[in-house]
């Protein structure tokens, strides 16, 4: 049984499944660094997924679809920013509104745009996207020939590589560039930032725009590679899982990537198990349960650290 599950296919699928969660997670990381809790990632991904797949169908080019998906992600999040920053709507409520648009609203749009009116919830773009529209995969020269590692690491959708590359780029952005310095200071002490003429508003817009860009990548990945087309609720909580991954990774890019991989693992596992004949309704909730358990574990570790600091042993350290 174990061998049937833990093979190279399985590890390949972990990376594939992690990619969209990772995009959203990076969005959450940069947002939180600037003090912006973007819980609208879920809905933003839905909107991007829809328009990405539609434009791909119309233009026949996945690249055009991808660009439109990214554009939509940024647009939606900037709109969110307008309500949250300019009109001072609670950012959480703004996120909830985006998620409403992401579920029912996208279905409305897809019905209107594609003129499919049959049935209640059946409208989708899955019939429009074919393998020819899919975002291409890449067999990495040399690496693909390495035994075991080759089949795991090579042959992924190019966006999967982009996702993991973006972990590094996000770190560089945050810790090596002036923009990153501004983002961190806006998140930590916005008054300090504004007192030296850094526009807190601008930085927050940049941060939420970035998280929208990431959601755009995630949405495009979902509808133009992972599921081949848009359907209702296809993002299935990945935007929310990303928030959990961000928290578990203590808000740092690399740590959050590791947490995202944990969720990828849980989902890959549940898919594998259900393919072995166990009711999918029993195993599909596994990643959601793992998210709760992960958050609990993280909180316990944090609490342990705090307790340690209050213990008598902390006294001895300073005494020396």
């Amino acid at each position: 049984m174990l061998q049937l599950i833990f093979n190279t296919d399985f590890f390949f699928s972990i990376l594939r499944i992690t990619a969209p969660i990772l995009f959203a997670t990076l969005g959450a990381v940069v947002g939180e660094k600037a003090g912006v809790s973007n819980i609208g990632l879920e809905g933003t991904m839905m909107v991007s997924a829809l328009f990405g797949s539609l434009t791909t169908y119309w233009s026949g080019s996945w690249a055009v679809g991808l660009v439109v998906a990214l554009f939509c992600g940024v647009l939606v999040s900037l709109l969110m920013g307008f309500f949250a920053f300019n009109l001072k709507t609670d950012i959480i409520l703004t996120g909830i509104a985006v998620n409403m648009i992401g579920s029912g609203g996208t279905l409305f749009l897809v019905k209107v745009i594609t003129q499919q009116t049959e049935g209640k919830a059946l409208a989708s773009t899955t019939s429009l996207i074919t393998a020819a529209h899919q975002i291409p995969s890449w067999n990495i020269p040399l690496i693909k020939d390495i035994p075991i590692l080759g089949p795991i690491l090579s042959g992924h959708c190019i966006l999967t590589y982009v996702a993991f590359l973006l972990v590094f780029l996000t770190w560089v952005l945050l810790y090596r560039t002036p923009l990153g310095l501004n983002i961190r200071s806006v998140g930590e002490n916005p008054n300090a930032a504004s007192s030296v003429g850094v526009s807190v508003l601008k930085i927050k817009y940049i941060a939420i725009g970035f998280s929208g860009l990431m959601a755009g990548f995630g949405g495009a990945f979902m509808s133009m590679y992972y599921s081949m087309g848009w359907s209702l609720d296809m993002v299935a909580g990945r935007g929310f899982i990303a928030l959990a991954a961000q928290a578990m990774g203590a808000g740092e890019p690399v740590g959050s990537m590791l947490s995202a991989l944990v969720f990828g693992f849980a989902q890959a596992f549940s898919i594998k198990v259900s393919s072995k004949g166990i009711d999918s309704n029993l195993v599909t909730p596994i990643p959601y349960l793992v998210t709760i358990l992960g958050l609990v574990a993280f909180a316990l570790v944090l609490r342990h650290r705090v307790k340690k600091q209050h213990s008598a042993s902390a006294l001895e350290k300073t005494a020396k």
């Binding site: 310095l181 961190r184 200071s185 008054n191 300090a192 930032a193 007192s195 030296v196 003429g197």
Partner: peptide, 23 residues
């Protein structure tokens, strides 16, 4: 302006705080 409640970012270094906004 030198504010009563310091307008500094605690986790950044003195130099980083100095150049914040004009890095």
């Amino acid at each position: 302006m030198v504010h009563q409640h310091f307008m500094l970012v605690p986790s950044l270094t003195v130099a980083e705080n100095m150049v914040l906004g004009m890095v």
